[in-house]
């Protein structure tokens, strides 16, 4: 039976169920349990900085729930090495911003093994990582960066927008035999949806259609999907019906669902919290321009932050991040175009 769970709980439940089901699944990273080295502590002090790994250590033991020193290259590389030799490691890169101190292991090692070794290697590693702004966490703890990973052949990129999707996609990620990067938006951890108690998987490469509408297609990921839905409600009252598509995975990317929608609406707004250059917004826009040009009735609009680092001060950050009002403005502009 389904019940309400937050995305944090859904992610935690997915790991519990997969560790129960398959003893080759291990979880590792910084502060996964927390408090390691403090002799008098029992149980998990933290269970991850966001509590997503809470309870795993006491349940499955330190052999499979592994706290590491702060040395991302070494422990993410170790997760990759372990996954190439028979384990299924779920490794936490606490914030995606820290990719700068470990990226070689992800993009030159994990992503390439299978190809450069002629199809003989499997590396079923999952890198879980936090993305997104909205907490005044400033320039080194607020980025999205998923376009960088999406750029790399050999990596799969998963970006859930809600608890139901997060559980199904994480279980799918853990069972996948290729490296998967799983991006969790910090602002969505407390968002609740109905989530089945049972285990289930959600296939990669199938976008979610969050709302049907015939006037304008909005494509949005993670937290921006919620902003897009908010904008769509406002716009519906004005008589503009939006179709809101959440790609859910950017590699593989469900091009068909986006193209079919644009063929129907003829108008596209892409919302992306990542930087505007070489972004998912740019990627999806170019894909639609290339493959559905004749369906377009208006220029494609992108809603994205400016090409700047993420600022700290709350009003600055609010000015930086896309929101429902900016999305609604972009939709109105494409809806009006040509009329």
């Amino acid at each position: 039976m389904a019940r309400k769970l937050s995305m944090r709980q859904a992610i935690n439940e997915a790991m519990h169920q997969e560790m129960e089901r398959d003893e080759s699944v291990i979880v590792m990273g910084e502060d996964i349990m927390g408090g390691l080295g403090v002799d008098w502590l029992e149980g998990d002090a933290w269970g991850g900085t966001q509590g997503t790994t809470k309870g795993l250590g006491p349940r499955f033991g330190r052999d499979r729930v592994i706290d590491t020193p702060i040395s991302e290259s070494a422990f993410i590389g170790a997760a990759i090495g372990a996954s190439t030799t028979g384990m299924r490691a779920i490794v936490e890169l606490m914030y995606v911003d820290f990719l700068g101190v470990c990226f070689d292991q992800i993009f030159n090692q994990a992503a390439k093994f299978r190809y450069m070794f002629g199809g003989k290697a499997e590396c079923p590693v999952v890198v879980r990582t936090q993305i997104g702004g909205g907490f005044s966490a400033a320039a080194q703890h607020s980025q999205c960066l998923y376009p960088i990973f999406t750029h790399i052949p050999g990596l799969k990129c998963v970006i859930p927008s809600n608890a139901y999707d997060a559980k199904g996609l994480l279980i799918e990620a853990i069972r996948d035999n290729s490296p998967v990067i799983f991006f969790e938006h910090k602002k969505l951890y407390d968002a609740e949806t109905e989530v089945p108690e049972e285990s289930y998987t959600l296939p990669f490469g199938e976008a979610g259609i969050l709302r049907e509408g015939g006037d304008v297609t909005i494509v949005a990921l993670a937290r921006m999907a919620h902003m897009a839905m908010e904008a769509a409600e406002t716009l519906a009252a004005e008589g503009i019906e939006c179709e809101v598509i959440d790609p859910r995975t950017t590699s593989p990317m469900d091009e068909d669902t986006i193209l079919e929608s644009v063929e129907n609406t003829g108008r596209l707004v892409v919302v992306d919290e990542s930087y505007p250059r070489c972004s998912m917004g740019a990627d999806i826009s170019s894909m639609v321009a290339e493959k559905a040009f004749d369906s377009l009735k208006a220029p494609i609009r992108k809603v994205a932050p400016p090409h700047t680092p993420v600022p700290f001060s709350p009003p600055l950050e609010a000015a930086y991040l896309p929101d429902a009002a900016r999305i609604a403005d972009a939709v109105r502009a494409v809806a009006r175009h040509g009329s």
């Binding site: 139901y164 199904g168 089945p196 049972e198 285990s199 289930y200 998987t201 959600l202 259609i209 049907e212």
Partner: peptide
């Protein structure tokens, strides 16, 4: 058969087993 009918059926179908 609208989006929600399909989504509801899929949610049940995806459950383990």
């Amino acid at each position: 058969v609208n989006r929600n009918v399909v989504e509801g059926a899929l949610r049940n179908r995806r459950l383990e087993g």
